[in-house]
């Protein structure tokens, strides 16, 4: 491993760090090499416990780097504990906040809607987390909600949002439970309602659910939407209707957590160098998670 900031090591500016965000649905890797960044996004799948190292390997290959080039790895997301080669695990709350702070510094609230949960994070003027709230009990208000509906209607997940915008009158759909909502949607379609109107209601329902949760920490502009669901224009518009103002979107909403993780990794390295502390006790190889350890 290269020793940064020490002779004959590399200068701090060339520090290479990685952020690994293992979400319930997508795995995201960001490698920061000095000021340049390479990214990798892939499905998490059921095997993520054993595959995190493969994803990182792919990302490293893309950047023509080896694992030993990485000074520090921060893992985050739902599967962060299954990244045995990470130097530290940090929650997605802190990582999203850090990522958003660097991408969109005017943000005071981050609403992250991921595959299995949603969260709202309140930031102060310095971009530090001052409060957060999470829906971690059920799939309503998460990307899974949209996936279930897309599946049952035989639509592509990507087309749901656009279609919903073509609705004239949103049909009210319950926002409490994904299973019940699916039944409602199928029922409305069977009743001959317009698909676009049903979808408009559905997007409204998901946005309502997330909005009422997020409002518990008192939403303040600017509001940034992150996570896979942020890519859905229907949700974005529905959320803006509830808020009464526009939301901001990072260039790639899936990556904010991994970007934040990489930034935190860099900060941790710099801090360790500043304090003259050894960076880590023990470096573990880039390998799969072993069970029973």
């Amino acid at each position: 491993m290269a020793e940064y900031g020490k002779e004959p090591g590399k200068p701090v500016e060339e520090l290479i760090v990685a952020g690994v965000d293992i979400g319930s649905t997508m795995t995201k890797v960001v490698i920061r090499n000095g000021r340049t960044m390479s990214t990798f996004i892939g499905p998490t799948g059921a095997e993520y416990r054993t595959l995190a190292h493969k994803v990182v390997e792919d990302a490293l290959n893309q950047a023509s780097l080896g694992f030993d080039d990485l000074a520090y790895v921060v893992a985050t997301g739902y599967g962060r504990m299954s990244v045995p080669f990470a130097d530290q695990q940090i929650t997605e709350i802190s990582c999203h906040a850090r990522g958003v702070r660097s991408l969109l510094p005017t943000a005071r609230t981050v609403i992250d809607i991921g595959g299995q949960d949603s969260k709202a994070i309140k930031l102060n003027e310095q971009g530090r987390v001052i409060n957060f709230v999470m829906n971690d009990k059920c799939a309503a208000g998460s990307g899974r909600f949209l996936e279930v509906i897309a599946e049952s209607l035989g639509l592509k997940l990507e087309e749901l949002g656009e279609l919903s915008l073509k609705g004239d009158t949103a049909i009210k759909i319950s926002s409490i439970c994904t299973v019940f909502a699916e039944q409602e949607v199928v029922g409305h379609i069977a009743d001959g309602r317009r698909l676009e109107d049903v979808l408009a209601g559905l997007h409204d329902s998901l946005a309502s659910r997330v909005y009422s949760m997020a409002e518990r920490i008192k939403l303040e502009p600017d509001v940034v939407l992150t996570g896979g669901v942020a890519k859905n224009i229907g949700i974005r518009k529905a959320m803006e209707r509830k808020l009464g103002y526009q939301v901001l979107l990072p260039p790639e909403p899936l990556l904010t957590g991994a970007i934040g993780a990489a930034l935190l990794a860099k900060e941790l390295v710099l801090k360790a160098i500043e304090q003259g502390q050894p960076l880590k006790k023990e470096r573990r190889p880039l390998e799969a998670a072993r069970f029973f350890e």
Partner: peptide, 11 residues
């Protein structure tokens, strides 16, 4: 719950 507690402690 662990994620929430950990995030709180980080905060």
């Amino acid at each position: 719950l662990r994620t929430r507690l950990q995030a709180f402690i980080e905060m």
